[in-house]
Design a protein around this nucleic acid. Sequence first.
DNA 1: GCCGTTTTCGGCCCGACTGTTTTCAGTCG
Length: 571
Amino acid sequence: MPVQNAEIAGMFDQTAELLEIKGDNPFRSRAYRNAARVIERLPKSITSLLKAGEDLSELPGIGKDLAGKIAAIVATKHFDVLEKLKRELPGDLGEIAALPGLGPKRVKLLYDKLRIRSLEDLRRAVKSGRLRELRGFGVKSEEKLAAALAKPQAEKRFKLSQAEAEAEALVNHLRPSASDGQVIVAGSYRRRRDTVGDLDVLMLGRDGAAAGDRLATYDDVVNVVAHGPTRTTVILRSGLQVDLRVVPKVSYGAALMYFTGSKSHNIALRGLANDRKWKLNEYGLFAGKRRIAGASEQEIYGKLGLSMIPPEMREDRGEIALARAGHLPKLITVADIRGDLHVHSNWSDGTVPIAEMAAAAKARGYAYMALTDHSQHTTIAHGLDAGRLSRQIDEIDRLNDELDGFTVLKGSEVDILADGRLDLPDKILSRLDLVVAAVHQKFDLPRKAQTERIVHAMDNLHVSIIAHPTGRLIGERDPYDVDMEAVIAAAGARGCHLELNADPDRLDLNDINVHAAKVAGVKVAISTDAHSTGGLANMRFGVDQARRGWLEAADVINALPIARLRKLLKR
DNA sequence: GCCGTTTTCGGCCCGACTGTTTTCAGTCG
């Protein structure tokens, strides 16, 4: 199998880590890390770029040297620089450096003085009390490491929807401490990432210590990690970390930018400030000691020669160049959505009748909704066979006669069988307005077979949309092994569309794949997969991810009026 | 190792907090 972008990025990250521990030029390790980020965010595989004769050194952060190294990795599947570093610094120093409170410098010290090469070595050193003999280590460090070693849990990320529930309650608790009640959750939460690692809360005010006290006494707090005059960090019962920062009005915008990130976006902006001999930090934009902007984000972006970049785009994926040129996309909003194209009823595994779903969709201001119950193969969901689907079609026709200003489109979420055939015969599919095809079993096919399976399903001209194209369930099930670049290209070639499933447990396509679809000219359906009327409200989570993938209304088929939508559905 | 509207060398984001020091290095975000 060709080398994946993620593997190359992983090699570069490991290289950076070991270079840091070794004490090499810190900018060299930063270059490796930068390159890793660039590579993992590419909408296309490095392998295919090389095949197409692209010059990798054209990519930002990748010069002649790294371009050559990447080519060598693709050819040999090995990275000699990394292998040499691993021989010099044997053991798993990366997992040691991942512990809280241990960075490259201290890992090196542990390695040099105590020959610590693994978590096990470290555990023994902590137990024997040798650790506190080292310069820079004391009783506290020993205690903290003992605690971290006792529960070596991987960094937990929370689904956006979970984080939202926590955030709303927390903000309500904090609001009385804020000037004008101004409290906002920034960070990846504000950027609407599909998962959130912590909550970065920004509060307008003057008394950071008092606000920190209020946070520290929040019912759900189990641990106060840090508590200073302007910043407080706590851990909630759920494991979610909360950082609170209190800032005055003059620097509110700067702090909001700083706390919203992403880190790489901020670094790039600070670079722009540097170019002008200015300094950007969380207090403002400064020319010498003079603050030239800071109260609002808009003002700071403006001074830097940029239009205001929406939080969802702040990932340093090219948005800064667009903002400088004044060519930022006009991102889609929930208000642009005119219908939902993936909805279930109690004919299969939904909870309410078709008419009830239709009424709820209409109440949301939609003009249409596609009813897409499961097909026969998904027996556990009472999937419909051709006979039941035929009766359902008749029922929808009757329902549409009664509905005023709203249309229920006749559809089906048809299983894609292991060989790529569909679970229902063409004869019945031809009576539908749209077919949403989806993989529901055999998730473990090899990459090539899985990819061909989905592409083959799109060969059927009745198929309008591929639902939840990678099958992931966030935090529960990884995406199946599939070549999304190939799937996107095949969809483009066939005039097929891809779903962005808005269920917060799925969010599939993810932001990267959504953007790749946009680049390839493949239009997206943002659909909730609702199994109840309440599920229709998940649309906004889908729109969030669409915005992260830079989609505009024109990129989304369910932002179209129904007449134009119908034309696109017929291939 | 990358990069360039003060360019091919000499820069590379910036500050808070902690723990361990006795003025600061390291880590973190």
